[in-house]
Design a protein around this nucleic acid. Structure first.
Lengths: 211, 211
DNA sequence: GCCGAAAACGCAACCGAGTAACAAAAGATT
DNA sequence: AATCTTTTGTTACTCGGTTGCGTTTTCGGC
């Protein structure tokens, strides 16, 4: 019953990791569009078809590093402490991530993370792929919300869509702050305030402002 | 000072139209991925580079027909009657479009429109391109909302993002209804109810349900 | 330790989207 | 009619992604 991965599996993991690492390194150094998949394959000493056996598209090659965040929002809702509301849990979690300078919040000035975010937000095809990822996130979140017995399926889907969208815009806003040269320390209080503003809006609706 | 379009301009318009029409016809008949841009160019008796001088990507070629809806939400807000709230104007407008069976609502069972929507929602690259269109829509709407003096820039952007997202989900929901074989007449009342539900949610927030 | 089945890989050729360079044609201008 | 400008066609190329096929590598049972 020795259930260790086995040699084959370990090699695959290593190849996969090498591809992702090398790709990101090259992308950050020369720019996403200035690096061909053939370049990456050559650098890892692997054939082009092999590369595509690991990653379905060039974009996935670049986004692998953030793919494990899949379903985070759903997990936060499902795993919230008793007596906590879904929205409350999400809000608290976002503030936590902000405090931890989690790259997903857009608020992180590690050089590599910043370069990565810059690449993300300035490369249309990556942004498009990212949208597909968040679409999956949205479905998962909708599922989790429906579990709470809150309301019908449509309501859950609408709520999930709004929440995921707002997260994206908050991250984008934070990235913009840093892109204009500010430091994390400087922008952090504002980021918290923005998040509160966003969650107040999500919770209480747009009526006060726009009706 | 005769300012009529001139022969050259007229020819260009006609070529552009022919490209879009022929492309959509072929796409609907054989499927987006089963038609190459070379096929379209050949059918219009135009060279491939010429085609790309009119449409930057294959996707734009397919989406040209719906491109004129750009900025509709923003126009509704800017052009609302005095005393009407932005949210109220958008809600009323959506109900109107629903009643008119406007394709943008997803609720239209004309054979061609349905085939077009099916193509849209089942072709990832088209969906991705559509996302970019709505991103522009969102910016325009955010601008219009800011004009109303409602609130700060971030609030306007968040509100715009939520509104556009909700529109998309409503259209998707309506498309789903028809895709499962129902008729417009049958689904229309539900679609109105869904829209009201969505706008209630937008206006009053998610608090009642999820907090 | 050996051997057969699977899995993974490399190679080479291919397809389709999109672009560049330059020459040819057609509309506009005087 | 001669000229200038805009648009077009041709050819050839790059790059992302796929396919077919033969070869190597690992795994499992013996």
């Amino acid at each position: 019953m020795g259930d260790e991965p086995g040699l084959r599996e370990r090699k695959k993991q290593r190849t996969r990791q090498a591809l992702s690492d090398t790709a990101i390194e090259l992308f950050l150094k020369r720019g996403f569009d200035q690096v061909s998949v053939a370049d990456v394959a050559a650098a890892v000493e692997v054939s082009k078809p092999t590369l595509f056996r690991y990653f379905p598209t060039k974009e996935d090659l670049a986004l692998d590093r953030i793919a494990d965040h899949q379903g985070e929002a759903a997990r936060v809702v499902s795993g919230r402490t008793a007596g906590q509301s879904p929205l409350g849990a999400l809000r608290a979690h976002f503030h936590e991530r902000l405090e931890a300078h989690d790259p997903v919040t857009g608020l992180n000035d590690n050089a590599i993370v910043r370069a990565f975010n810059d690449m993300l937000y300035t490369t249309p095809s990556l942004l498009a792929r990212l949208v597909r990822y968040s679409h999956r996130d949205e479905e998962l979140l909708a599922g989790a919300l429906e579990e709470t017995g809150g309301s019908g399926g449509l309501t859950a889907r609408l709520a999930a869509a709004q929440i995921i969208t707002v997260h994206q815009r908050l991250a984008e806003e934070n990235w913009r702050k840093l892109a204009s040269g500010r430091t994390v320390a400087d922008a952090l209080p504002e980021a918290h305030a923005d998040a509160d503003r966003a969650y107040d809006l999500l919770g209480a609706g747009l009526m006060e402002q726009y009706a």
